[in-house]
Design a binder for these strands. Structure first.
Length: 584
RNA sequence: GGGCGUGUAGCACAGCUGGAUAAUGCACCGGCCUCCUAAGCCGGAGAUCGCGGGUUCGAAUCCUGCCGCGCCCGCCA
């Protein structure tokens, strides 16, 4: 609890120095307690033992008995060699209710560019890609919540083989040929028949099949190879035809993402860096580097072994025919990104780890910094990895429909007086929020298997649990507004005794910004999801212990706490992309 | 074979810049709706922190060796 730490750190430092210890880093040693029932901050006294020739238990006790009184503290105790500090609930309440949560930020002026999703526009958005989009968008939202200026960017892979295959198929295959080739697969879900991403992916999949099995494969391969080559050389007519092929698919994907509350500020096309000459300029620069090498056929690489890379150390950036590679364009792209922002964050699948390292080392070689990268492990189906090519995917459109349907069932069951329209509105919010939460709740580097029953869980420890607490706070707000109009007092009259549920809620609120700071700095949104669960839990206990409206009378102090919690809950939910409904 | 990551209750998952009785949810057992929305609340039970060594006053956390799982090791994207 930074709020408390700021107050007592000087006191602790003074007390420790009085005992006569050398200069240990008290600031980092004074940490949040692990055992919440022991207090809010703790100072382990073990490291002092040697210098003082006293037992840690005795040191802690001595410090505790002499510790000066301070308004922010209600208790200082010594247990098992720990010096524990408990925040005064009255002090905490008055701090929180006078805007402490707004003023604790010291946000540096930063313009953050977060690139995420950037999936190849060759088919509908599927759950295997969801982790990137949800992780990325949550980072965008949390950085904004913290006060950073953020640009959310989608890097569009508008050249290369995947789009080439799609473009080729759309031009050369008829609808009946496509369906014949895919006769052993499920037909398009009728719900999405008119959605371009679901339509066009059939052409892509049919072409992939042709490329593997038919006699005509070599000819197709040649045609596609020519398209790829032309696109890599910046042939505008080919790039235009690619765009015509993928843009409707991309639009369909973005529609799906929009349903999850995911939006982008900018789309940057990969081909841009080829057509504007930056890639070829870059390759010339790389060629002049000390660690540059040339293969027999003229292909060029950097020997990154000289920069500490292990394993395969040659990083090829130019082919024998002089054309660039994906990673080369990525470097040009990063150079451009650095020209606009002073913090770069990329969200990438773990399969990109090596390449990200190569790109990062090369950027350093060019005198630039590496971007920060958040890696995540893939979402698998219980049957294995998802692949658009093979068609074993769960489409996000289907998941969201199913989530909504399940949520609608729950709402209709619980709220039998609601109109259909209301039920649909709530179900949509609950469904999409639950899907997001289910994914963001897990730390990114951990493997994740998609299971319907988990994705559609609406019980405690899920988004609806948080949403429900928030609606309780909203309901109270409505009722109090009816009772008091706008005559809510702003002077606080604290009762002597504060109920436990209230104290616990204040303490969760007191830790809230500590958590947000850590999450933004370390890119670990799952910890913020956990914080919101604690907050919702805390609000529920407060709601249980403290009647804000009792026999028609409003307890104004309780109400102010409720309103603070409502505000923090709502902002936090927005930070996670959970829809803050006002009733459900 | 080499590199990176991961392994915590029946299941899922937090904690990993060393600190107290390893947190949370599901499932399981028991209790709570004449009272601000019970999608809730309270209580109970459940863990050789993958296995073996080491460092330390102290190890789930750091080092090391094994084992399981995932990803990567293209002049592909």
């Amino acid at each position: 609890m930074e709020l408390l730490k700021q107050q007592i750190l000087p006191l602790v430092q003074e007390a420790v120095s009085k005992l006569g210890t050398s200069n240990l880093p008290i600031e980092t040693m004074l940490q949040p307690t692990r055992e919440l029932d022991q207090g809010d901050l703790t100072l382990p006294c073990f490291p002092f033992a040697k210098a003082l020739k006293m037992s840690p238990v005795a040191i802690a006790e001595s410090l505790a008995s002499d510790f000066p009184k301070h308004t922010s503290l209600c208790e200082v105790t010594a247990i098992n060699g720990y010096l524990n500090f408990r925040v005064s609930p009255h002090w905490l309440a008055s701090q929180l209710l006078t805007g402490a949560m707004e003023t604790t930020h010291d946000v540096a002026e930063r313009s953050v560019l977060i690139e995420h999703t950037s999936a190849n526009p060759n088919g509908p958005f599927h759950v295997g890609r969801a982790r990137n989009a949800i992780l990325g968008d949550t980072l965008v939202r949390l950085h904004r919540l913290w006060g950073h200026e953020v640009t959310a960017e989608y890097y569009v892979d508008d050249m290369g083989k995947q789009v080439a295959v799609l473009a080729w198929a759309l031009e050369h295959l008829s609808s009946s040929e496509v369906e014949r080739l895919l006769s052993d697969r499920d037909a398009v879900n009728p719900t999405w028949e008119t959605k371009a991403d679901h339509q066009r992916v059939r052409w892509y999949q049919a072409a992939q099949k042709l490329r593997q099995h038919e006699d005509e494969a070599p000819a197709i391969e040649k045609a596609i190879g020519e398209l790829v080559h032309a696109s890599e050389n910046g042939d505008q007519s080919v790039l235009d035809s690619f765009e015509q092929a993928y843009q409707p698919v991309l639009d369909g994907m973005l529609e799906t993402l929009g349903r999850l509350g995911i939006q982008f500020d900018r789309f940057t096309k990969e081909s841009r860096f080829v057509t504007n000459g930056e890639v070829s300029a870059l390759m010339d620069e790389l060629g002049a580097l000390e660690i540059n090498g040339t293969a027999d056929n003229g292909a060029q690489y950097l020997d990154l072994g000289a920069r500490g890379l292990k394993g395969k150390t040659e990083f090829f950036y130019r082919r024998g025919d002089g054309s660039s590679l994906y990673a080369t364009r990525d470097i040009a792209y990063h150079r451009w990104k650095w020209s606009m922002s002073n913090e770069l964050i990329n969200v990438l699948g773990e399969d990109h780890k090596l390449q990200a390292k190569q790109v990062g080392l090369t950027l350093e070689e060019l005198g630039l910094e590496r971007p920060e990268v958040v890696f995540y492990s893939f979402i698998k189906l219980p049957e294995g990895k998802m692949s658009t090519r093979q068609g074993n995917v769960v489409f996000m459109d289907d998941l969201l429909e199913e989530a909504k349907a399940q949520a609608a069932k729950v709402v209709a069951d619980l709220r039998q007086d609601y109109e259909q329209e209301t039920i649909h509105h709530i179900a949509e919010a609950v469904g999409t929020s639950a899907v997001r939460f289910n994914i963001i709740n897990v730390s990114p580097e951990k493997g994740f298997s998609f299971r319907w029953e988990d994705a559609l869980s609406f019980e405690s420890g899920s988004a609806p649990f948080i949403m429900y607490s928030h609606t309780r706070a909203c309901s109270i707000h409505r009722r109090v507004s009816e009772l008091l109009g706008s005559e809510v007092k702003t002077t606080i009259n604290l009762p002597k005794e504060l109920p436990q549920g209230l104290v616990d809620l204040l303490r969760v609120l007191g830790r809230h910004n500590d958590c947000l700071r850590k999450v933004v700095l370390e890119h670990r949104p799952h910890l913020f999801a956990e914080q919101l669960l604690h907050l919702a839990n805390g609000y529920n206990a407060f709601y249980r212990d403290c009647y804000i409206i009792d026999e028609g009378e409003v307890n104004e102090f309780f109400y102010l706490v409720s309103e603070l919690a409502r505000d923090v809950l709502r902002k936090g939910m927005e930070g996670l992309g959970i829809v803050p409904l006002e009733s459900m």
